[in-house]
Every structure is written in structure tokens, then in C-alpha cells.
């Protein structure tokens, strides 16, 4: 259970990215976060794994207060929260399998990292995870040699190495074409349904949110505008979230 209480983030330049957000996300849900650019989606996700430190409010996950945790505890918490990114954030010059193994770093003794050593079991698990996202044969290629969709799948495999209970996805398909977008979303859906991983996914396209999520949260100017089932968003709600001039685009 992830509980967000009165979460506010004001950046040093005075920009209020999140404004008193209250949420309760039960384990195993697939939650989409929609909203315009700058509405606070990324900030919200990054507050949950403390890449960003919130100004006010609390985030409590499985009875641990993430906002109050010290540096070391934060790392212990982050190990169990996977994250994938719009730009995939892979180390492009490293091999695919190295990128995947990096998901295991939180569990690895830092002394071993000097030698680039990972235990046999981790290597096997990395290959298994690559097989799961369907790119096992690419394991020893450079990450930069892969297509966008494949790179995002490497990102998913990397997050899987953490054996996460919660997956944060920050615009995972915004840099991909429609067909690849669906394939990546499907993998997230499988993780959600098969492994029971809670997924929090920010999306640009409402249609993707409707197709894949159990629940949709909409942010506008840092405020929570909508929280409910994907089918509850009608045209009026849509205009409320995206502004009067917006027209819904289907992505197939």
C-alpha cells in the first residue's frame, strides 16, 4: 500500500510542481498518471523514490516513511522500486547485459563493483529477464545498437533485476512509435498481472491509459484533478484536464 499525504513540492526557483496531493494506491494496481507537460507527473514519480525531495507531506510505503528516510534507508527502499524512463537512460556504450545487471547494484557489495563482478546467479537472472522481454539474443550487443523499443525493454529488464514491488514508469512510451508503444505497455501489463507488481505509469495519451490501467489519476498544475476508473473520463473531464482546445488523439 502506497499512501501519499499532503504532498507538495516547491522547487528552489519557487515553482510549485505538486500542490497538496493525497492518494492511496493499494498493492497490485495499474495506475496511469495523465496530464499536460509540466503538470507534475514526473515530479510525483520522482518523489516516490526520493530522486526528488518533497517540500511538505509524507509518502508512506508498506509502513515505511519514505520522506523521512536517511540516505542509506533511501537506497534500501529504492532497491525495491523499479523505474523506467522516457529516454530509457541506458548506458549506451555498455553491453545490454551490463545494463541489465546494473539493476542489481543496490544488492551488490560496492567492493565488487570496482571489479565489475556480479555473481553467477545474477548473470543467469539477467539473461532470464532479457528472455522475458524477448531480447535475450541481443544480450551482448551494445545498448546503442538496439532500437528504441528494444532499449525500453532493456530498461524494464534492468528494473526487474531489482525484484521490485513497485514500478515507476515516467512516460515510458513517449519516445516510441505507436506499435512499439503497445508492446512496451503490454510488458508492463504482464508484470502487473503476473508478478503482482504495482505500476505507476505517467502517460501522454489518454487512449493508452484507458487500455492498460485499472485507475487513472490526472494532474493539472500540480493539483489532483481526477482520480477514478479509466472509463469515467468523458469529454468534459478531458477538457478539464487538458484544456478547452484539446482534442483527444487515438493511438493504435
Amino acid at each position: 500500500m502506497l499512501i501519499i499525504e499532503n504532498l507538495t513540492k516547491i522547487y528552489d526557483n519557487g515553482f510549485k510542481a505538486l500542490d497538496n496531493i493525497n492518494l492511496e494506491i493499494p498493492d497490485g494496481q495499474f495506475v496511469s498518471i495523465i496530464g499536460l507537460s509540466g503538470s507534475g507527473k514526473s515530479t510525483l514519480l520522482r518523489c516516490i523514490n526520493r530522486l526528488i525531495r518533497p517540500t511538505h507531506g509524507r509518502i508512506i510505503w508498506n509502513d515505511t516513511d519514505i520522506t523521512a528516510a536517511n540516505e542509506e534507508d533511501v537506497r534500501a527502499i529504492r532497491r525495491r522500486i523499479g523505474m523506467i524512463f522516457q529516454q530509457f537512460n541506458l548506458v549506451k556504450r555498455s553491453s545490454v547485459i551490463t545494463n541489465v545487471l546494473q539493476g542489481r547494484l543496490g544488492y551488490t557489495n560496492p567492493l565488487f563493483s570496482f571489479l565489475n563482478y556480479f555473481p553467477r546467479s545474477d548473470r543467469d537472472e539477467a539473461l532470464a529477464n532479457l528472455e522475458r522481454v524477448g531480447i535475450k539474443e541481443q544480450a551482448y550487443k551494445r545498448a546503442s545498437a538496439l532500437s528504441g523499443g528494444q532499449q525500453q525493454r532493456v530498461g524494464i529488464a534492468r528494473a526487474l533485476m531489482q525484484r521490485p514491488e513497485l514500478m515507476l514508469a515516467d512516460e515510458p512510451v513517449a519516445s516510441l512509435d505507436p506499435a512499439t508503444s503497445h508492446s512496451v505497455m503490454k510488458y508492463l501489463e504482464i508484470l502487473n498481472s503476473e508478478d503482482g507488481i504495482t505500476v505507476l505509469c505517467s502517460l501522454h495519451f489518454l487512449s493508452l491509459a484507458r487500455t492498460y490501467s485499472d485507475r487513472v489519476i490526472a494532474l493539472k498544475d500540480g493539483k489532483l484533478m481526477f482520480d477514478g476508473g479509466p472509463q469515467e473520463i468523458d469529454n468534459a473531464r478531458f477538457k478539464q484536464i487538458y484544456g478547452e482546445d484539446a482534442v483527444e488523439v487515438q493511438i493504435n
Binding site: 522500486i81 541506458l90 542489481r104
Partner: peptide
């Protein structure tokens, strides 16, 4: 980006 990604893995 990769720095952020690795930080997020713990």
C-alpha cells in the same frame, strides 16, 4: 540519464 537510472536502482 543513466546516473538517475542507477540512483533509482539503489
Amino acid at each position: 540519464g543513466p546516473i538517475e537510472a542507477l540512483q533509482s536502482t539503489g
